[in-house]
Nucleic acid binder design. Structure first.
Lengths: 234, 234
DNA sequence: TCCCTTGGTGTACGGCGTCCACATTGTTAT
DNA sequence: ATAACAATGTGGACGCCGTACACCAAGGGA
């Protein structure tokens, strides 16, 4: 559910130039290439200008196809936007995972667990700072996040750990409990205040009233927030 | 600065019907009525559908005037939207002020000071819940919030207390310090983590991935957040 | 072989933001 | 009072956008 159909979408645009070789009257492109290309083009548009910049006609232009072709793959512009949002959300999840993976230490090591939580928040804020368009797009269409624990895991042996932002935050907090840092009684629901704080700062400093802060001020606010959160966890 | 030009804008739409009396070829409306009407119409559009629903042509239609007339009062649609955003932000400020005014108690009474802080957060979240369109619009265009203390107060005797959301939050926190609840050493900058938390929850549950929560779940998250913040303040 | 699904094309419509030229008014200077 | 002027509403037009309808070319079963 985290990435419905954006597997190979974000990686190759359809050569930027409108299919520079010959424009074939019939369709010759491999199966699914147009759909993936539209999503990839939409991601680039979103990266540059946020969700409003995901213009259906412009995406088809980038892929080198006529506007109506998009309607063979998406019911309307909103459906394309939803796919782009899913891709953006997946990229946020990936960056967060990369951030926590960079922290060494055992799973039940208290210090490491705390560092992982910090890495999650930092990666989230970093993504919002470095990719404001994608960040705004990721939350522009709420494609039914599984805020409640996902239903029974798939048949696969590995339940394919939840790479969604909320899922990763939960995992970090659970580790904090098993490591003995966080009292189990305080665990239920803490993810929401923490998520709210990090997300709120990202929004306020990204697109909100605090957007014009310079880098040092912004860094100070991030530091302030993480300290506040740590204090809230004892 | 809190409400640049929306003083009398939000209160009377130009009679809804396109100026039902006679449509005069020249202009007969009182000075500034069209501008105020456009802002009021924009506010209603924003209330119903958020910032994207503030459509210039539709606003002129509601006022009963031809689309181009808007360009006598606003450089472009973005300028109209900015005025609407300012009005929405002012309404948020008013509701917050009304919320704190409802709390009785002396200014240096610790309990009352704490209740005022809670009232601020509650009013903020309530506005986001009851007026999602206006809330989203208020933050859609960041018309340079004074996040740093505003410059020297006007010549007026009363410095016209800062009714902006951030200003009111700061006042409440300052009261918490003078009341002895909050250590002065912890005061500098606390407004930002707190604002972030409240704003983040408002966004996540309003337009974000948590939008489909029912009322009780939502109330639980708000409670959780306020408790977390209180804990962060000791 | 036929046909039917898949997916790209062309044309067209209405809505939007915006520009230009024009008309009318209220105000100000003569 | 009258003439000039700034302010403000009107009409028409342009280009872009999302989208609907009709058409048509490939390609894989039956």
């Amino acid at each position: 559910m985290a990435r419905p159909d954006a597997e190979n979408a974000s990686d190759q645009l359809a050569s930027e130039q409108p299919a520079s070789d010959q424009p074939p009257p019939g369709r010759r492109r491999p199966r699914g290439a147009v759909r993936a290309g539209l999503i990839a083009a939409g991601v680039e548009l979103a990266r540059a200008g946020g969700p409003d910049a995901v213009v259906l006609r412009e995406a088809t232009r980038l892929v080198g196809v006529v506007p109506n072709a998009a309607y063979r793959h998406f019911a309307d512009r909103d459906e394309l936007l939803a796919a782009v949002c899913a891709a953006a959300m997946a990229e946020l999840g990936d960056r967060m995972a990369a951030g926590v993976a960079q922290v060494s230490g055992e799973r039940d090591d208290p210090d490491a667990a705390f560092l992982r939580l910090g890495a999650i928040g930092t990666a989230y804020l970093r993504f919002a700072r470095e990719e404001p368009g994608l960040f705004a797009t990721a939350f522009a269409v709420p494609q039914q996040h599984p805020y409640i624990a996902p239903t029974a895991p798939a048949q696969d042996a590995a339940p394919a750990v939840d790479r969604s932002p909320l899922g990763q935050l939960r995992a970090a907090l659970d580790d904090l409990v098993t490591a003995g840092v966080l009292d189990a009684a305080d665990r239920p629901g803490v993810e929401y205040p923490i998520w709210s704080g990090v997300h709120g700062l990202a929004v306020l400093t990204g697109q909100g009233p605090l957007r014009d802060l310079d880098d040092t001020e912004r860094a100070r606010l991030e530091e302030l927030l993480l300290v506040f959160i740590a204090k809230g966890l004892e």
